[in-house]
Nucleic acid binder design. Structure first.
Length: 525
RNA sequence: GGCCCGUUCGUCUAGGGGUUAGGACGCAAGAUUUUCAUUCUUGUAGCAGGGGUUCGAAUCCCCUACGGGCUACCA
């Protein structure tokens, strides 16, 4: 007899998607400000799934709330994705067969779907004004209860279910404003399989009759989102965990429309490194690190928030660190290029719990990328920074500086902090080093060194100078450490920097002598 | 308050019935570096608690605690 294993894994968390053709995913931000890093990560995970499966990544702008329009936000979102190397296949500027890709441009579409729900008896008109609702809510609150607009209460409210048809017609005719609400079924259990969390259930009697269509003629997020995802043939809805509570509503909407629903995957949140709660836009960079990919200037308050780009992060490092927040490859590899990420990515390896963001680890990632990058490439990126400092040099020279210093730098601008002396004479002398290293008799000693170097005939290369210099110091019976530190103080202005003879070779004999002379004259004993 | 989701070193995480509970960041010590930084080596530190199930539980179940999210004519 042959035994066949039964299917014991009833909830395959692994992606059904992997074998599925034509994966279509979307990132659907609301242009109410700059995208923050959590949003970028959501976009990234969507993009990665599309890239892995050869699917399509769509950028859809969800601007159904006209009161929250922020100028520049839409451009910011697109620029941020571009900087990260997240390529949009279909979107506002890319176009595509499922457009328009901005919900305000799709406005005319939604009314008919709301009507469809009205006709099928799954939605109704509600005439309660915001003031009415607020009053009811506060009444419930004083009773210590929470008002929920649903099967239990809707008969007491002013809507097309509680009012007679003639009254309703009259209200409409008189121009009374109304919204369209979803008629949430009473006491049903809605269950759906989340790709990350497995089976999740909700009882509809605890849910409310969400507004689907606002009195201003725009749909709410819920309606627009479901309609667009359907029309755009989205296969996977990958979004933040904050949307998990609205999953039953969305599932129900697909059901009532009799549409095939996409697969849902709710990503864990990125939490603040310290304190409580999810990382929010309002955190700005008050916590010592940026929360935005790009610098953002608030168009209303002119308040500036720093961005990873401007802080000196490399886009590939930023993407890498974001990917490792909540996802892991199951191996010990931590450094991934975008292609490698797409290759390795799998929603089943996304964790369930929120991750506190660790700025220190973020720096470590950038340092890794700095080491990995080509010196010429880094030098090119450094040129604008040098120009800002008023330095004029050849790129070749900068390449050499980068080669010597990148190991000790985490961010590109640090190369300047670590190596300004390659480009200009020290403007000041670190007082601590001066008091420690510039003692009685040192200026006289440096003068002898000056004379030695001034008359030096050998080749001006690090190794040769070092050898002859050492011989000279030994002959003079000077303390080597004392000499070198004083020498360094003259050349660099502080007790820091690359190998001293390398520096001398780079800046040349003339500058070396000049700096020694300046030191002798200007450093106080 | 209600609903939903979660909980392995300080942080990010591996591990999904039998492991000395693995890695990374950070931190500490040592080595190298004439300084600083880098680098290398070593070390540090964890299964939230309580009940089950089982020969055996970090792993499966329940309860509690804690954390988080949502609870708008915002997304």
């Amino acid at each position: 007899m042959i035994w066949v294993n039964d299917v014991k894994d009833n909830y395959p968390k692994s992606n059904i998607s992997m074998n599925q053709q034509n994966v279509r995913v979307r990132f659907a931000p609301s242009p109410t400000g700059p995208l923050h890093m959590g949003g970028v990560r959501t976009a990234l995970f969507n993009y990665l799934l599309a890239k892995k499966t050869g699917g399509t990544f769509i950028l859809r702008i969800e601007d159904t709330d006209q009161t929250r329009f922020v100028p520049g936000a839409e451009d910011y979102i697109m620029e941020a994705l571009k900087w990260c190397g997240i390529q949009v296949d279909e979107g506002i500027v890319e176009g595509g067969p499922y457009g328009p890709y901005r919900q305000s441009d799709r406005k005319a579409l939604y009314q008919q779907y709301a009507s469809q729900l009205l006709e099928s008896g799954n939605a109704y008109l509600a005439f309660d004004s915001p003031e009415d609702l607020e009053q009811v809510r506060s009444e419930y609150e004083t009773k210590g209860e929470t008002f929920t607009y649903n099967a239990a209460t809707r008969q007491q409210m002013r809507n097309s279910l509680s009012l007679s048809k003639s009254v309703v017609d009259q209200l409409i005719a008189s121009g009374e404003k109304y919204v369209i609400r979803f008629k949430m079924p009473d006491d049903e259990v809605v269950t759906d399989n989340d790709l990350i969390r497995g089976s999740v259930s909700f009882n509809t009697s605890l849910l409310d009759d969400k507004v689907l269509f606002k009195s201003d003629g725009m749909p709410t997020y819920h309606l627009a989102n479901v309609v667009d995802d359907h029309l755009m043939e989205i296969t996977h809805v990958i979004r933040g965990e904050e949307w998990l509570p609205s999953m039953p509503l969305h599932v129900l909407l697909y059901e009532k429309f009799e549409w095939e629903k996409p697969v849902f995957a709710h990503l864990p949140l990125i939490l603040k490194p310290v304190g409580k709660g999810k990382l929010s836009k309002r955190d700005g960079d008050k916590m010592g690190f940026p929360v935005f990919p790009l610098r953002w200037t608030d168009p209303f308050t002119s308040e500036v928030s720093s961005g990873y780009r401007e802080e000196g992060y490399f886009p590939d490092a930023f993407v890498n660190l974001l990917a490792m927040l909540g996802w892991n490859p199951g191996t010990e590899q931590e450094i991934f290029s975008m292609d490698e990420l797409a290759e390795a990515f799998d929603l089943s390896r996304v964790g369930k719990s929120g991750s506190k963001f660790d700025p220190e680890k973020a720096k470590w990632f950038n340092h890794q990328y700095m080491q990995q990058k080509d010196n010429a490439e880094l030098a090119e990126m450094l040129m604008p920074i040098l120009h800002e400092k008023g330095v004029k040099v050849e790129v070749d020279y900068v390449v050499k500086v980068v080669e010597m210093l990148k190991e000790r730098a985490t961010f590109l601008p640090e190369i300047w902090d670590q190596g300004f002396y390659f480009f200009e004479d020290p403007k000041s002398y670190d007082p601590k080093t001066v008091s420690k290293r510039w003692k009685e008799g040192v200026p006289e000693m440096m003068q002898e060194i000056y004379d030695f170097l001034a008359s030096y005939q050998g080749a001006w290369s690090p190794a040769i100078v070092k050898e002859d210099f050492s011989a000279f110091v030994t002959k003079k019976q000077w303390n080597f450490g004392l000499v070198m530190n004083a020498f360094r103080l003259c050349i660099v202005g502080a007790a820091m920097g690359a190998d001293l003879f390398e520096i001398c070779a780079m800046i040349g004999k003339e500058a070396t002598l000049r700096r020694i002379q300046n030191g002798i004259q200007n450093i106080p004993v």
